[in-house]
């Protein structure tokens, strides 16, 4: 069997749509992931993605499989959990990671329960794992709008965001941008998870955000380098995942995230910034 890398996309409209959707997602989600990883907020992303589920499920109960309703429901629920867990961490003796873990388990169970109330197992699978091969116009517009919003936001908030990460006290003292930057950053993460949930489902949307970001950390020592590498890793995983799923007849959402995972594992071995085998390779060469 010969593997043609272009034919699947040339031949089938659903593959082209999937590709466009994944490209949009790969441009916006991984750079956010880079900042999440640098701020040690990976776990928080995970719980926000799970929090989207009950919101989307409630919308599903009320309006059926309607994209705008489910996106809005997911957005509200995701933001609510992001703010609530921060509040619980401040108000109780629990550390933020513990309260996040609690929230995400509750959200996941609640979401699955809500979807099962009315939907079939197929609906549940769609919501959990996405339908990247069934992206309609609405979904593509949503993904495009999310990517555009994210890029514009980065252009506006990049400088205060970097300062907020490196020296938050300094930013607090020299400007009032600190609070707004942090909150809009969280909102944008949720927005991207809601977008990603259309393509990859709530369970896997985090994958395309965090895996390319962790991969990028292993290849570059500078922030601009990491941001560029993360987008590249996201694009590569998307294309590879779609092709593998097409030729091997595998579900495409998991294939994309697994491709990103494979890229990460390889980078963990040979990535120049702290890869396991890098010292060995250097010795062999020198």
């Amino acid at each position: 069997m010969t593997v043609d890398l272009l034919a699947p996309f040339a031949e089938f409209a659903f593959m082209r749509r999937a590709l466009v959707g994944c490209v949009a997602l790969s441009i916006s989600a991984p750079p956010l992931g880079v900042f999440l990883v640098l701020r040690r907020m990976s776990l928080m992303t995970d719980s926000m993605s799970h929090a989207i589920l009950p919101g989307a499920a409630l919308a599903f109960l009320a309006a059926g499989l309607s994209l705008p309703a489910m996106a809005a429901g997911g957005l509200v629920a995701g933001l609510a959990v992001a703010l609530l867990s921060g509040f619980v961490a401040r108000a109780t003796i629990l550390r933020e990671d513990a309260s996040l873990a609690a929230f995400y388990l509750i959200s996941l169970a609640l979401g699955v329960m809500l979807v099962s109330l009315r939907g079939s197992n197929v609906d549940l699978l769609h919501i959990l794992f996405g339908t990247v091969l069934g992206l309609d116009d609405q979904a593509l517009i949503l993904l495009g709008a999310v990517a555009t919003t994210t890029l514009v936001w980065f252009a506006v908030a990049y400088r205060p965001l970097v300062l907020e990460c490196v020296d938050p006290l300094f930013l607090r003292l020299v400007s009032r941008a600190s609070g707004p930057v942090h909150l809009s950053f969280l909102a944008l993460v949720v927005l991207n998870l809601v977008g990603g949930f259309q393509a990859l489902g709530t369970m896997l949307a985090v994958g395309i955000m965090l895996l390319p970001a962790v991969t990028a950390r292993l290849w570059s020592a500078t922030l601009p380098g990491m941001l560029a590498t993360s987008v590249l890793a996201g694009l590569l995983s998307s294309v590879a995942g779609l092709l593998v799923s097409y030729y091997a007849d595998l579900p495409s959402g998991p294939a994309i995230v697994l491709a990103a995972g494979a890229l990460y594992l390889v980078s963990a071995l040979i990535g120049p910034q702290g890869g396991v085998f890098v010292p060995v390779l250097r010795r062999a060469r020198g």
């Binding site: 640098l38 970097v162 490196v166 020296d167 006290l169 300094f170 922030l223 990491m226």
Partner: peptide, 13 residues
């Protein structure tokens, strides 16, 4: 401050 809240691992020059 005496102990600034600086994240020294952040990749900035």
């Amino acid at each position: 401050p005496q102990r600034p809240e600086i994240d020294r691992t952040f990749p900035i020059g």
